[in-house]
Design a protein around this nucleic acid. Structure first.
Length: 800
DNA sequence: TTAGATCGGGG
DNA sequence: GTGTACGATCTAA
């Protein structure tokens, strides 16, 4: 019979001396199954070797002799040349490293370190989570929790994505004294929370009166663990999500299970979670450690610098933890008081983890679609790994053999290499009119595509030496390289999706798809320069920035003929149009674009009636990445200024924004100065409401680990003493009050401050004036000196 | 200043 | 598992 099937997890198992691939997943009818495929053999490649030598290889092992099973001859490509490659088959995946070592005497062994299950996906064209058709028969087998489907044949994946997968999230609380070492051997698990959709459950083993319907009591820790296994059986998750469950929840549970002499057979083959180096796998189920994905990939696109559950949930879900912290849990458990609150806490962590998994799921699935590897792996990959596994899949369809990963010496050599980066045209501080901004759309990816930048095309022997700008090497202009073609595919796919997005009703999925393609395309430049990369190429990385500098300086040179050039960084350019109109800017862009090769495109990003560039502390130099623009509608766009940072009081932010507005809209620096003077005076007379004096700073690390006690740390310490929840990543708000003590002793919680009793001078000198200092300096105005006389007059009056 | 060590997240 | 992190920040020399 034939089934339509969405594979989620892929492993293999040795049955009667033969490796059998196991694909776990759901059928189109929503049934969980395990598809077993015995038709795939382990192998690796050998180039520059003789068939007769390889066929004779025999490695003596304690378990017996390991031999090459058979050898095939193929025509492949390697580093841009056609090669005779021997496909060397082994009996078992674990034989491959042994045979590789032996075979290395006769040639260059390639692709000998690709895990068997991943090799299978690549070679069969199967993409996890995408539909494939399997021909075969169901078979009853008591070794599995799900029906076994023995595959006779399997198709490549289609474009159809799995839907309606069940995500179950979980979280444990342990009996560990807070702030001290966590010791799994000594400290039991006291609560376990599970959530899935609307389902919520907390298992705990001390009884107390409660109205909470999701709390379930058992007798001891052992029963708690057994109940967890039952719950997983009942809920049948496709995805089991935790937060730092690779590093904490699962390892802790495994340690406690061992101590209690119980098994945790939650795998679909009744196996326990398997703890590898820094990853825990559950057979047949996608174990998702939400933190891993955030730390490695998604965190790049986030604001928060700390990735604890609370901060991440606040930013992604707009909803954080509420209620108590864990400070009192140890005592509560010892004395069995107030445990209900901790059950709420526990279930909340499981629920938030589940919501995060749900929210990030489309992004992860789209990465799976592009990269072609299982979700459990993709969700743990770094940018370079995503690129590498994507390329490994693509290389096969190009008939290209992958280079090996670098060995130690090679790695060290690579680490010593540095090269020239992007071009920056530093701005001259000043206020400018009629600012036009252009930028290259996906500069580096389009350069890679347009100039065929690919290691296999480097210094070809077949065409003229058309050097990369200022460099001594060139790329082939007759054939297409692997990586340049692949990136062109990514760019054009992304362009099509962006087109669809314009008219799409349901944008979420397309957006995730577009972001996944962008993520991979944008990572390839960095990948070329990454020391651990298979397709590492200093020449490629160098050429990309060289072309980038060449293009942007080319545009700058052309622009100078007609406009004033204000600023440029990597792929963007800011011009002042002067006497010429905006039509000229449009003509200019069109002109440039007519000459740009391939998919390269300069975009007219916007027109701004005025723009301000400020200086750095050293006089005369313009600050990079720091400017303010005003749109025709009168909206101000600020980049790099303090106003968009957090630890500035509202009054300082407002003053900075208003000053920028006066300067950009009215071009009246003198008026701005008067405004500043008025604010300073109002602050001094305590006419500004204290609410505008609140400084908010995020706690970057655990409270105990601060050495220098900044004001916000002192406030956080007092909050904790009052029994309030203070977590890493918590936003701490305070007001500096008047007095003579150290600042940190005068920092008070806003609700502790009455009657605008703030330290005016502190706010004037440390918040308000510094926030406008560099803006006014552009006009030759030294705010501190100009506002000083006011202060001086007061002092004169006092002493006079 | 540099090289080497530790940490993140979790309780 | 035919394999494994990595980049920032602190500490000691």
């Amino acid at each position: 019979m034939r089934i339509k099937f969405f594979p989620l997890d892929v492993t293999y198992r040795v049955v009667r001396g033969m490796p059998v691939i196991h694909l776990y997943g759901r059928t189109s009818e929503g049934r969980q199954v395990c598809v077993a495929d015995s038709s795939f053999e382990p192998y690796f490649w050998l180039v520059n070797g003789q068939r007769e030598d390889v066929e004779r290889i025999a490695v003596q092992q304690p378990g017996g002799e390991v031999r090459v099973k058979r050898v095939e001859q193929h025509q492949k490509k390697y580093r841009g040349s056609s090669v005779n490659a021997l496909k060397v088959f082994a009996g078992l995946p674990s034989d491959v490293p042994l045979l590789r070592r032996a075979a290395s005497m006769y040639g260059t062994a390639l692709e000998a370190d690709i895990p068997f299950a991943r090799r299978y996906l690549i070679d069969k064209g199967i993409v996890p989570m995408m539909a494939c058709e399997v021909e075969g028969e169901f078979e009853h087998n008591p070794s599995y929790r799900v029906p076994l489907f023995r595959a006779a044949s399997i198709s490549e994946s289609s474009e159809e994505v799995a839907e309606g997968l069940r995500i179950v999230s979980f979280d444990i609380e342990t009996h560990s004294p807070l702030g001290k070492e966590i010791i799994p051997a000594e400290q039991p698990i006291i609560m376990l929370g599970v959530a899935s959709g609307g389902f919520q459950r907390v298992i705990t083993w001390k009884r107390f009166d409660t109205q909470l319907d999701y709390v379930e009591f058992v007798d001891d820790e052992r029963q708690l663990l057994e109940r967890f296994v039952q719950l997983v059986e009942e809920l049948q998750p496709d995805v089991l999500a935790g937060y730092y469950s690779d590093g904490f929840d699962f390892p802790f549970m495994l340690a406690r299970a061992a101590r209690n002499n119980v098994q945790l057979p939650i795998g679909l083959d009744f196996s326990q979670p398997r703890a590898a180096k820094s990853q825990v796998d559950v057979a047949g189920v996608v174990h998702l450690d939400v933190l891993k994905f955030i730390r490695k990939i998604f965190g790049r696109y986030m604001e928060t610098p700390v990735f604890d559950l609370n901060s991440v949930a606040v930013e992604i879900l707009g909803e954080g933890k509420h209620g108590i912290g864990l400070d009192g849990l140890w005592n509560a458990w010892e004395n069995n008081v107030g445990l209900e609150d901790y059950c709420r806490y526990n279930v909340q962590d499981a629920v938030l983890t589940g919501k995060l998994a749900q929210r990030l799921f489309p992004n992860m699935v789209e990465l799976v679609r592009v990269v072609g590897m299982p979700l459990a792996d993709v969700s743990r990959m770094s940018f370079s790994q995503l690129v590498e596994w994507y390329l490994l899949g693509q290389a096969r369809s190009f008939g290209e053999l992958a280079p090996n990963r670098p060995e130690y010496v090679e790695t060290r050599q690579r680490l010593e290499h540095t090269f020239e980066g992007a071009y920056v045209h530093e701005p001259t501080p000043g206020l400018y009119s009629d600012v036009a901004v252009f930028d290259f759309r996906s500069l580096y990816p389009t350069i890679i595509s347009a100039h065929n930048i690919s290691p296999d095309m480097l210094n070809c022997g077949c065409c003229d030496q058309a050097f990369a700008p200022g460099l001594k090497f060139w790329f082939c202009s007759k054939r297409r390289g692997l990586i340049s073609s692949v990136i062109e595919g990514l760019i054009t796919r992304r362009m099509r999706i962006k087109e669809l997005l314009k008219s799409a009703e349901d944008r979420k999925l397309l957006k995730a798809r577009e972001e996944a393609l962008k993520t991979i395309a944008n990572s390839i430049y960095g990948y070329f320069g990454f020391f651990g990369a298979r397709w590492y190429s200093m020449e490629c990385a160098q050429s990309i920035t060289a072309f980038g500098r060449d293009y942007i300086t080319g545009v700058i040179g052309r622009a100078k003929e007609r406009f004033g050039v204000l600023y440029s960084d990597t792929d963007s350019i800011f011009l002042t149009l002067g006497g010429s109109g905006r039509d000229d800017a449009e003509k200019f862009v069109a002109e440039i674009n007519r000459e740009l090769p391939g998919l390269m495109e300069l975009e007219y990003q916007g027109f701004y009636p005025a723009g301000l560039f400020v200086g750095t502390r050293e006089k005369g130099i313009g600050a990079k990445k720091k400017y303010a623009l005003i749109t025709e509608e009168g909206n101000i766009r600020i980049k790099g200024f303090e106003a968009i940072r957090r630890n500035l009081s509202p009054i300082a932010k407002e003053t900075q924004e208003r000053v920028l507005e006066i300067v950009l809209k009215e071009r009246a620096p003198q008026k701005a100065l008067e405004y500043i003077a008025a604010i300073v005076s109002a602050a001094r007379n305590r006419e500004i409401p204290q609410g505008k004096m609140i400084i908010t700073t995020q706690l970057q690390k655990d409270l105990a680990s601060y050495d220098s006690i900044a004001p916000h740390v002192a406030v956080a310490q007092r909050m904790r003493q009052q029994g309030r929840q203070v977590l890493v990543g918590s936003m701490i708000s305070y007001i500096v009050t008047a007095g003579k003590d150290r600042i940190r002793d005068r920092a008070k919680l806003p609700e502790e401050v009455k009657g605008n009793d703030y330290d005016s001078e502190y706010y004037i000198n440390n918040q308000i004036l510094p926030s406008v200092e560099r803006i006014m300096a552009v006009f030759g105005i030294d705010v501190i000196r100009e506002v000083e006389p006011l202060q001086q007059k007061r002092l004169d009056a006092f002493f006079g």
